[in-house]
């Protein structure tokens, strides 16, 4: 028990000592910690390489204690592909936001998933462009007000928010695709379990793996951190159901 408390109260080895630049109440910090705990628990820190995106987590390489590359906007899956193909012995993950992955990087993520690239994607969906100041994202909810949808997202011109986990699950290539959330301790435990499972599939050289994590953006949502957590539960959860959408075992069962 004392040991568990030590682990909870100490910083994972895979997290650096740097103070993050994230806004107060932002859940990136929680997700970073879940990834770092997973890396520690699986004992892979010394053979892990991360790929940082463009967006709020552009400086993720400052916060993880592992080798890192900084990608161009949306291109992290292509970089991870190039790296992992040459170093299949290493563990590779990308950490991408919704603008990065679901808008400008849509081509790269679909094709990396479809080729069954053996790396892990941590996809943080907070329904908005954070770093650039709160513009409409492909994941912005219908009617949600942003700086570029001041009257709310109009689905007749902007279409409906893209459900990436479902979209990627429709590919025939085996993969592990799940959606989690971090607005409540119960869900945080579930998110950790899914992230660990995603990395485990990679370690077993089994398949492409992606965990979509519903996250908050108090600053650009214009809400307090606690109200943001409630907003996620009330608005995002119904549109973005949590769950495991695809596992490589599904394929075996189908046969």
């Amino acid at each position: 028990m004392a040991q568990d408390v030590d682990i909870i109260l100490s910083r994972p080895k895979a997290l650096s000592d740097n103070i993050t630049h994230y806004c107060p109440g932002c859940t990136h910090g929680i997700i970073h910690r879940l990834v770092a705990e997973t890396i520690d628990e699986l004992g892979i820190r010394e053979r892990t390489a991360g790929v940082a995106p463009v967006g709020c987590s552009v400086l993720a390489y400052n916060y993880f204690n592992v080798d890192f590359m900084e990608a161009a906007h949306g291109r992290a899956p292509a970089m991870a592909t190039g790296f992992k193909r040459l170093r299949p012995d290493m563990i590779v993950f990308t950490y991408q936001g919704d603008g990065d992955l679901a808008s400008i990087g849509m081509g790269e993520i679909i094709h990396a998933a479809n080729r069954g690239e053996k790396f892990t994607v941590i996809f943080v969906n907070n329904a908005i462009y954070g770093m650039t100041g709160g513009q409409m994202a492909p994941t912005t909810l219908p009617g949600q007000k942003t700086t570029t949808s001041p009257l709310g997202r109009d689905v007749t011109t902007a279409g409906y928010p893209i459900r990436m986990a479902e979209l990627l699950s429709s590919l025939r290539t085996p993969a592990y695709i799940a959606r989690a959330a971090v607005h409540d301790p119960m869900y945080i435990i579930d998110a950790k379990r899914k992230i660990k499972r995603a990395f485990s599939y990679q370690i077993a050289n089994k398949c492409f793996s992606l965990v979509e994590v519903l996250s908050t953006c108090p600053t650009n949502w214009g809400l307090s951190p606690t109200v943001s957590l409630e907003w996620l539960e009330k608005n995002m959860r119904p549109y973005y159901p949590l769950g495991t959408f695809k596992t490589p075992e599904d394929e075996v069962e189908k046969k």
């Binding site: 790929v51 990608a71 291109r75 292509a78 592909t81 190039g82 790296f83 193909r85 040459l86 094709h111």
Partner: peptide
């Protein structure tokens, strides 16, 4: 070719 460019980036990083 956009993806090629970044596959090269990732691969060259090895």
């Amino acid at each position: 070719e956009v993806a090629v460019g970044y596959m090269l980036f990732g691969a060259a990083s090895t």
